[in-house]
Amino acid sequence: MILLVTPAAPASVHGNDVTARRWQSILRELGCDVRVTNGYEPGEYAALIALHARKSANAIRTFHAKHPGAPIVLALTGTDLYPDLVTSGVEQDILALANRIIVLQPQALAQLDTEQRARTTVIVQSMPDIPDEAPRHDVFEVAVLAHLRDVKDPLRTAEASRLLPAESRLIVSHAGAPLQDDLARLAREESTRNPRYRWLGEQPRGEALRLLARSKLLVLTSHDEGGANVVSEAIAAGVPVLSSDIPGSRGLLGDDYPGYFPVGDTEALAEALHAAEIDLNGYYQRLRSECERLHDLVAPHKERAAWSDVLTQLSLPVPRPVAS
């Protein structure tokens, strides 16, 4: 039995829980029994996989004390890695206890020292192809899938939409849970006064993916990301991405991707949105072509193969063969 600890609430639509549930499914496909919890729970375990170094620190220490010979896999999230491990409050003893470290995109390796990198595996989050949804033809709809937290800068797209010319048909559909009361109040006010913006609140995962699949663009405005699930989902849906210029997105989309804007730069985001809307055969098509080129990056068989390699490195029971 493998214990998989995540700080997210069970069955939530938060990124850590989506990741934990997908990893549970992958590991089961590989022949492992997996128990997902929010902290250490007593039991007989062959290994620990912990999401989030800081929030899972107590579970990691307890697991090591109770199972001193069992391997520990530590997955570092965006709020672990950025701006850096020390500032984020990641304690060195937690890093030292990890037999393997997981990061979600290759640029995260720059945040680790040489010894830590030697123990690290990059596992890009996967997503099966998302079926097409008929787009709205009366508007140019863009999706924001971001919970209301400061690190997500969740109202930046709404603010950018106010700068668009009067003839623009762009609207912003924003799905995300109200995790901060102040941001929830601002989102409600923005929905009332800005005809281009609708905050939909927290949506079931299936509804959020359907929103993404029908949209012309996904906009990600975060200050930091470890390697956002939603970018993998957009690639799987064939939906182009506009993203704040952060390592977590560069590690997935590439340094030459044409859809970056400076973090927190409302005017630059507005310019990118307008260019995508009016230049469908030029700028928009470039974004779309780049995301299509990245399609294989998020293929589920690649994530399964990466986890198979991790299990082998830890000398855990030999997993089932991985289909290509």
Rank of each mutant, 00 (worst) to 15 (best):
I2W: 03
V5W: 04
P7L: 09
P10H: 08
A11K: 11
S12H: 07
N16W: 03
D17M: 13
D17R: 14
I26W: 03
I26L: 14
I26R: 04
R28S: 08
E29H: 12
E29F: 01
G31D: 10
V34N: 08
T37Y: 00
G39L: 00
Y40V: 03
G43T: 02
L48I: 11
L48P: 04
L51N: 11
H52V: 05
A53P: 11
S56Q: 05
N58D: 15
A59V: 09
R61E: 14
A65G: 02
K66S: 07
A70D: 13
I72T: 12
I72A: 06
I72G: 02
V73E: 03
T77I: 05
L81P: 06
Y82V: 06
Y82M: 07
V86E: 15
V86N: 11
S88R: 07
G89W: 13
V90K: 05
V90Y: 03
E91V: 14
Q92H: 10
Q92M: 04
L104V: 00
Q105L: 02
A108R: 01
L109A: 03
Q111K: 14
Q111R: 15
Q111M: 12
E115C: 00
A118D: 10
R119K: 13
R119N: 04
V124F: 09
V124T: 15
M127I: 01
I130G: 03
D132G: 01
D132W: 00
A134F: 03
R136E: 12
R136P: 00
V142H: 01
V142L: 14
V142S: 02
L145A: 07
A146R: 09
H147Q: 15
D150H: 14
V151T: 08
V151A: 08
K152L: 12
L155E: 01
T157A: 15
E159N: 06
S161K: 09
R162I: 04
P165K: 06
E167N: 10
L170T: 14
I171K: 07
G176D: 03
G176V: 01
L179T: 01
R185S: 02
L186A: 13
R188P: 00
R188W: 01
S191T: 15
T192H: 08
Y197L: 10
R198K: 13
P204G: 06
P204S: 06
G206N: 13
E207L: 13
R210F: 05
L211K: 08
A213T: 11
L218P: 08
T221V: 09
D224T: 10
D224Q: 11
I235E: 03
I235M: 04
A236I: 13
P240S: 04
V241W: 01
I246W: 01
P247Y: 05
R250N: 05
G254E: 09
G254P: 05
D255T: 08
D255Q: 08
D255M: 04
G259I: 04
Y260I: 09
F261C: 05
G264L: 08
G264R: 09
L269V: 12
L269T: 12
L273C: 05
A275E: 11
A276W: 06
A276T: 07
E277S: 05
I278W: 04
N281H: 11
G282T: 09
Y283A: 07
Y283Q: 09
Y284N: 10
Q285R: 15
R286K: 13
R288C: 05
S289A: 15
E290Y: 10
E292V: 12
L294K: 15
L297F: 10
A299G: 09
K302L: 15
K302Q: 15
K302M: 11
A305C: 08
A306P: 10
L314H: 11
S315F: 12
P317N: 12
